[in-house]
Structure formats: C-alpha cells, structure tokens
Design a protein around this nucleic acid. Structure first.
Length: 884
RNA sequence: GCGGGCGUGGCGGAAUUGGUAGACGCGCCGGAUUUAGGUUCCGGUGACUCUAAGUUGUGGGGGUUCGAGUCCCUCCGCCCGCACCA
C-alpha cells in the first residue's frame, strides 16, 4: 500500500524552481508553430491578490497549459494596471510616494502569483506606470492627434468632487463616480477627447463577428453605442413670435410617421433658442437656471417630474404652414442627443403624453392599433407605442408605421420650400467621445505644451517620455502637478517662449487599452509595438475577466485597436477573438449578536445539514450566518489566498476554484469544499503511487493469474484503457469549451474507475503484462488530464510514474477514439413513453433488427399484455419507443 | 419603464441540445480499518408505497410530440444591465 503523504508546499516550491530554470513557459517570438494567446485581465496592484484573481488566473492557466501541450506556441503574459487613484490616496494617508507604494505592491503580488504556479512568461511583464511603457502611450497620443483622432474642446463634464477629477460617461454609475461613489457634478472644462464616435458604426457592426463573445456583452455594447435611425426636421418659426436672428428649429425624431399627431415642440434648457427666447422673459430665464442647478441633484433625478415653460415662439408645421405649434423649454430634453430639440406627439410617446397632460395640449392619436376602431380609438393614461395603421394623418391614412415613416421622409427630403430640403435622414448614437483628461498626478502625462503664442503644441517625439516629477506633495486636494514649482514651466518647442505643460494626465483606461499589444514585444524601446510581431500574436485568442468590464475596458480596447491600425501600429480590427466573463467568488457572511461583521477566521462551523450553525471560535457563542455575498472587506467575508496556499497548497486552491460551479457563475467558497479538494489531491497521489507500483509489476500480495504475454489484451486491460481514453476525450472537449467543472467531474470518474480496477486485481500483475501496461498508460493519461489544473501534483506524479522530463512540457496524449466505441450498446425501451425495459444490441444492428429484438423481449411482452403495437420508433443508439 | 438571463434532490450542479432526469462533488446514512476521534476503504442516498413491482418527480398551469428539464403559450419568483437617448 502506498501511504506517503503528498507534501504540497515542498513540491510546489520545487517544481516552480524547475519551471523557472528551464524557462518552460517562455514564448519565443520566432517560434514557427501556430500561436495561441491566452490573457487574463491584468490586475491593479492593490497590494494583495484576492480569491477573484485566483479564480481568474486558474482558468487562464488551464487554457494556457492545455494549449501548450497541444503544440501551440502559447503566449501567456502578466502585467500591472499600475496607475490610478488608490496610490494617491495611500500617499495622502501614509506619506509614501505613489510610485514606492505601487512598486512595493507589485513585488508582493508578483510573489503571490508565483506561488500559484501559473504558467506565465514573466519576461514579458509590464507595469503601466513605467516610463518605458507610457512613453509609447504618449507617442501614440501624438500619432492619434495627427490622425485627427484626438480633440480638445470645452465641454460639460462629469466632475467627481471626491477624487477632484473628471469622469467619462462610462465611469458614471447611477449618478456617482465609479470609484469614489461620490455624487457627480456637471462642470464646464476644456478637456482632451478620443474620438471614439468616429468608429461608432464600425464598433457596432463588428460586434456581429465576435461570435466567441458572450451574447450578453455584445448586447450591452450594442445598447451603449445606441444607434438609431431617424429624421432631422427643420421647423420654420413664426417671425412675429421669434427673437431676432432665429428662423428655424431643427428637431430629431425616429417617428416621422407621427408628424400629424404633433402638438408641441420642446428644446433643452441649454439649447441656444432657449437662451435667446429667455432674453426678455424672466420666467423662462428663471426656469432655465433652475434646470441648471437641479441638473444633477439627487432630488431632480429621482422625482424626474416633467416641467416646461412656453417660450412664446410658434413653429409652423412642415407639412401645413398654417398649423402653428408652441415651442417649450422642457427639463426632459437632453442637449447632447440629437439636436437638443423634439416635436412632441403625446399619443405615441409616454413622456410627450405626460407633458401634454400637464400643459393641456391636444392628444391626437395617429396610429391605430390593429383591431381597434379608428373612429373611437382614444389615448388614456398610457401612450400607444406599438405598430398599427395611420389615422388622422391626411395622405398617410391607412399606411403602416414603416410605410408612413418612409412617406414623410421622402416628402420632406424632396420638399423645397426655401431652396433647401425640410428634413434629412440621420443616424444618431448614444455613444459620446471618450474624455480622457484627469486632473490627477498618478497617471500618464499628456504630452503637450500650452504656449501663449503658438497655442497647443506637441512635445517633440524625441523628447518623450514626459515623465512625472518625483517631488510632489499630497498635502492639499487637487492635482499636485498644477502647483508644482518647476515641472509645469517649459520652453515652447516651437517659438522657445515661456510656456506651460499640460497638467492633465490620461484616464487609466487608456493604459489598459493596448497592454495586450505591448506584451507581444515588451522589449522594443523605440516603438509601442513591432507590428510584424504584434500582428502575428494578435488577436488574443482567449481573454478572461470580469463582467464589470463589459463596456468600459472592452469598448475602449476595441477603439484603441482601430486607432492603432489607423496609425500603423497594428493591422487588426478586433483585439479579443474569444472573451469569457467569469463569475465572482462569494462567501457566507457572519454577524455577532451586536450586528458586527465577523471574519471566517473568527468563527467555527459546528454540526452539519440542518444542524449546521456558526459559533464564535473564542467563546463558543452562537453567531448568525448571513447571506452569501461577494467577498468584500466591508462584510469581512474574505479568505486570503496566501493562507489557503500555505495550508493546502496552490493546487488545492486552483482545483476547488474550478470544481462544482460553472465558470461563468458565482462560486461559493466553503471550508468543506476546499478540504474536499485537499483530500482529492492526496487521493490522486496515493492512486498514482499504487498504479506506478502495479504497472512496474510490483508485488501486491496475491497469486498470479494474469498472463504475461504482452500480445494478448485481456478484458480487464481493455476496460482500464477505455476508461482512460474516454476521460481524455471528454476533458479535451470540455477544456476547449471552458467547462472546467465538467473536466473536474471527468477526472473524478477516471480516478474512480481506476480505483475500482485496482480493487478488482486480486493478484500481482506481472511487469509488461497487458494489464500492467494498461495501468501505466491510464495513469499517465490521468496525470496529464489534471496537469493543467494541478500542475505541481502532476509533476510529482509524473516522476513517480518514471517518466523522463516534466509533464508541463510533455505533449498531450493522443486519444484512441476507436477504443471507446462499444461493440454492443444498451438501449432503453419505452412503451408509450415510459421506460419499461432495456435491450443490448450490436452497435451496427439495423432498425429492423432492433424492432424484432424489442418485440420478442420478455419485459416488453409482459407490459404489452398482447395489445397490438401501433408503431415502433427506433432512434439509433439512443432509445426505442413502442406505441400501442 | 426598456432589454437580457435564470428557476432541476438537503446543497453546488450534470443531462450528448427533443431521447434512460439527477453525471461528478459536498452533506447525510450504514459497514470495514483504527485503542479512540480524524483519516482511509466499501456500499447506500429525489419523493411516495416498500418484499416485489410500481407510482410520482425538473417553480405553477396549459399546449405541441411516439417522447419535453429542453420547444410554444401563460402565470409566479429571483438575478443582471440600461435608464428622460426623442
């Protein structure tokens, strides 16, 4: 009996050193084999890895190790998303420099990741806060500027009062800053923008080609880009009612079919027409100011009550100049979508209806629902927004909605009242340009200089990088760069006069928008990429990370890839061919009677099943087991990966992370679960030990009964090999589809089968006998199929089995598909859809043969009770159904 | 409000995509080993009737089909995303 315990920490240290020395996981840029790029979203160096990282990187590592074994040149790099606010917060609190804090965290986390035994090519490591990284980002910023992909404009921005910085629209969540959680304010600032909207259409249509992305993410991006097709209509204004200088109002609509149902027009409070109309109308002026103040207050956003004030202006209906409509300023019109003006059709838009009821405006239905009587159809509290036939609409009457849309568009496009068409078709997007200016220190400096004479001047490419000054203080809020005594002062590169450096730094999402490209050749000093190499390695074949990046990071990276293509740094459109979004790691929460959160270390679980409860470890006092939630510091339900690795080993942690729950769903971390994984590690170690002994013809204490003739394959040997190859085929299929929980089940199944086979051996097996060889082969397959999951254990087992070299560098075994095909198959037999019997037939039995066998089967005849058979349905190698 | 997803034993979850529901694991029950606990090994484990053989069973109800966890309709419950986008 093989009883040695597997000592994880010792073995793991050993094999990590072996891999390191051999450079096992280094990918060569000259390797002629087919490439495979596995990437997990790189971490922010917060200081310590958490269980979410463990899960994310365990998944990526399985894919990387599997593909490597399958003969791909696998590139699997790791780096650090190292700029950002927390470093500045730490600097303020601890009086450390952000760089010192960041690099110390990186060192710590790198050591933690190494203890996980990940098959990473550490030579490719990059940190985005390294001037050798961000100098290239600055270079690309200038390239983008030259290519017209960057603009600088004054704009209303989202201002985070806690972080003292601007946020992009994507970074405002529920009116709060995505990081600080502070209520965002609107401010007008001059900002740098990446023109992501230039690619709106392409970013949208290319989503269709991303068929290895989750549908959910594609849908979220589609909605975010928010394409709509409509008509911008020019409404002539009645000069008698209109301030001097204004002649028309342009309003965007997606429902031109409802034009005859219009009863008012409305403009945004910050629309130019609103301000000119307000010049001699104090009430309107007051309303506009109220909107501006209320703009972002919680009250305004929560009540969202429709409000508006009449401008006194009257607009003429484009299809009937004698028909005049009032123009309002209304709080629910957004200046930055469409034209900032609408025509309201209350019958067919809920907002317009609410507003019309408030103001007592007409509500005329112009679309009649199918089956309703056009004469009596009226609108109550709810607008009718579905399809139907046009009514009360003159020449449109009787048309369907699409027909009417087209008819109105065609008419207004062609109409030529004042020498110009009255409307033009227009495509609108919700997507806004990406504001990248941040008023922070710890980010990539924007490489421009402001000169009084020359304006905004680029820093010459030869002068890059613009590095951050080190002598900064965080004593006061705001951007330390702004108040730096010397750094800001610089000579204008064009005229030499005194000038001022741009003190905004780039949004950290810029840093993470191209790191995957830098990994392909992180050594090249003179350029962001070597396009030849980058194009060979990209796109990333399998990208793995959290769903929280479904829009921000993934959309920015898709934009950046296109911008890099335009500037010659890449020649691909999409950075990530395959995307997988993994679930979170969640854990029970515990609360003491006084309501305080307790950490898992402070409590002890007693009992099981219905009796299961938690007590305080120190006193035995009963504590409440709360909801299962995402691991977080505030709920104190975190488990530290280092502790787990220390106690059980990295393999156990990795194995448990991939067991049970499907990878896209949340996994519940439990002490029982990790213990079970730990036991399975020991079980595999014992099992492989026994298999090694028996395969070597070692004495297992009984009489000999197995033939020593290697040319005769016995039944026992065949079934051992079958089990192994069946598991091998199943694992291949499930790793490729990232169904790691099923892979775990297949490894268990093979282990169970081999244990049973060993239990069935009552005699010592002669060395080189078919059974001994079958056990040897099966043991090797077992080790190889769990190697991507538990690589250290696999190495130890591999050498126990007497294999030369390391399993991490061994080619994947070739599955014998013919072997697993059974000669006979067992078919369930249903009678009227209920399972009544089972028959065993030859694999190649014909439908006719099977019918005959079924109808002679004793159990079948018994159930039939001589009733006549109406029909026999035979589904080959599946099932037989007899219908009576 | 709009959009999307999900609902299977005590628990996490399988189910070849319309073909034996509950793989695999956790937990539980029983047995063996052990001085004992733990470990390890073997067996059992949806529910109901239990000797047999059955009956029933995938949130509720209805439908299509020889056959439904899977498809359709409807209701209930939970989760996620977006949110005045004209």
């Amino acid at each position: 009996m093989f009883t040695d315990r597997y000592h994880a920490s010792e073995a793991e240290r050993h094999w990590q050193a072996v891999w390191d020395e051999a450079g096992t996981f280094e990918a060569s840029n000259d390797d002629p084999r087919r490439k495979y790029y596995v990437l997990e979203m790189f971490p922010y160096p917060s200081g310590r890895i958490h269980m979410g990282h463990v899960r994310n990187y365990a998944m990526g590592d399985v894919v990387a190790r599997y593909r490597r074994a399958r003969g791909f040149n696998v590139i699997h790099p790791m780096g650090w998303d190292a700029f950002g606010m927390p470093a500045e917060n730490a600097a303020m609190q601890n009086k450390t420099h952000p760089a010192a804090w960041t690099y110390a965290n990186i060192a710590n986390m790198r050591a933690q990741l190494k203890r996980m035994g990940l098959s990473l090519d550490w030579r490719r490591e990059v940190a985005t806060c390294d001037p050798d990284y961000y100098r290239h980002q600055q270079r690309m910023f200038l390239d983008f500027l030259d290519a017209g992909l960057v603009t600088r404009k004054k704009s209303k921005v989202n201002w985070d009062p806690a972080d003292h910085t601007v946020l992009a629209n994507e970074q405002v969540i529920d009116v709060r800053g995505w990081r600080s959680g502070a209520l965002v304010e609107q401010r007008e600032l001059v900002q740098w923008f990446f023109k992501i909207t230039d690619f709106a259409e392409e970013l949208l249509t290319a989503l269709d080609g991303l068929d290895e992305w989750p549908e959910k993410v594609r849908l979220m991006q589609r909605n975010w880009i928010g394409r709509s097709e409509g008509l911008t209509i020019r409404w002539a204004l009645d000069p008698a009612t209109t301030p001097a200088g204004e002649t028309e109002l342009r309003a965007y609509t997606t429902r031109p079919d409802t034009l005859f149902g219009a009863s008012f027009l409305a403009v945004a409070p910050d629309h130019p027409l609103a301000s000119s109309a307000a010049a001699n109308r104090p009430a309107l002026q007051a309303f506009i100011e109220e909107c501006r103040r209320m703009g972002t207050s919680v009250a305004a956003l929560e009540t969202a009550e429709k409000k508006g004030v009449d401008t006194g202006i009257r607009a003429r209906h484009p299809l009937d100049p004698s028909w005049e409509l009032p123009v309002f300023v209304a709080n629910f019109i957004l200046m930055d979508y469409g034209t900032g003006a609408i025509f309201g059709c209350p019958a067919h838009d809920q907002r317009d209806l609410d507003f019309a009821r408030l103001k007592g405006l007409p509500v005329v239905p112009v679309v009649c629902p199918p089956g309703a009587d056009p004469e009596s159809f009226t609108i109550g509290a709810e607008a009718f927004v579905e399809d139907g036939r046009l009514i009360n609409s003159r020449f449109l009457d009787g048309m369907t909605v699409p027909e009417a849309k087209e008819a109105v568009a065609a008419r207004l496009e062609a109409a030529d009242l004042a020498g110009a068409p009255q409307a033009e078709r227009q495509v609108n997007y919700k997507l806004r340009d990406w504001g990248i200016s941040r008023q922070r220190y710890w980010g990539c400096p924007i490489p421009v200089i402001h000169c009084a004479a020359c304006g905004t001047v680029q820093v010459p490419r030869a002068d890059l990088p613009v590095t951050l000054p080190e002598d900064v203080s965080f004593e006061e809020p705001g951007n330390p760069l702004d108040r730096h005594p010397t750094w800001t002062h610089v000579a204008c590169p064009q005229c030499g006069a005194e000038a001022r450096r741009e003190t905004d730094t780039m949004d950290t999402f810029v840093d993470s928008s191209w790191y995957f490209a830098r990994f392909t050749d992180p050594w090249i000093a003179e350029a962001p990429t070597d396009p030849k190499i980058a194009n060979r390695f990209l796109p990333v074949d399998q990208y793995i990370g959290g769903i929280e990046h479904a829009i921000l990071h993934l959309l920015y990276s898709r934009f950046f890839t296109r911008a890099m293509k335009k500037t010659g740094w890449l020649d691909i459109d999409e950075p990530f061919a395959g995307l997988f979004t993994q679930g979170m790691v969640v854990h029970e929460t515990y609360r003491s009677p006084d309501g305080a959160w307790l950490s898992p270390e402070e409590i002890r679980i007693e009992g099981a099943g219905a009796e299961r409860h938690a007590v305080l470890a120190s006193s035995g006092q009963r504590v409440e087991i709360g909801a299962i939630e995402k691991m977080s510091k505030s709920k104190r339900n975190t488990v530290d990966p280092d502790d787990i690795i220390e106690t059980y080993g990295a393999d156990t942690a990795r194995w448990f992370m991939l067991s049970d729950s499907p990878p896209e769903r949340d996994v519940i971390w439990t002490e029982e679960g990790v213990q079970a994984a730990g036991k399975f590690v020991q079980r595999l170690w014992r099992l492989v030990g026994e298999l090694a002994t028996i395969a070597a013809g070692g004495d297992n204490g009984g009489p000999r009964d197995e033939t020593g003739d290697p040319s005769v394959e016995t039944l026992a040997a065949r079934s051992v090999r079958k089990a192994a190859h069946r598991a091998l085929i199943a694992v291949e299929e499930d790793v490729e589809r990232l169904r790691f929980n099923r892979c775990v089940a297949h490894v268990h199944e093979l282990a169970n089968a081999l244990s049973a086979a060993l239990g069935g051996v009552e005699a010592p097996v002669p060395a080189a006998s078919p059974l001994a060889r079958a056990f040897h082969e099966a043991a090797a397959i077992l080790v190889q199929i769990f190697a991507p999951f538990m690589p250290h254990l696999a190495e130890s087992c591999w050498s126990t089995l007497g294999h030369a070299g390391i399993v991490s560098a061994a080619p994947w075994p070739t599955a014998d598909r013919a072997l697993v095909v059974e000669d006979t198959i067992t078919l369930p037999v249903q009678i009227n859809g209920r399972r009544r019997a089972e028959i065993t037939v030859a694999r190649d039995a014909t439908v006719h043969d099977i019918e005959k066998i079924v109808l002679q089967n004793d159990s079948v005849l018994k159930v039939l009770e001589a009733r006549p058979v109406r029909k026999v349905i035979v589904v080959p190698s599946r099932i037989v159904n007899v219908v009576v």
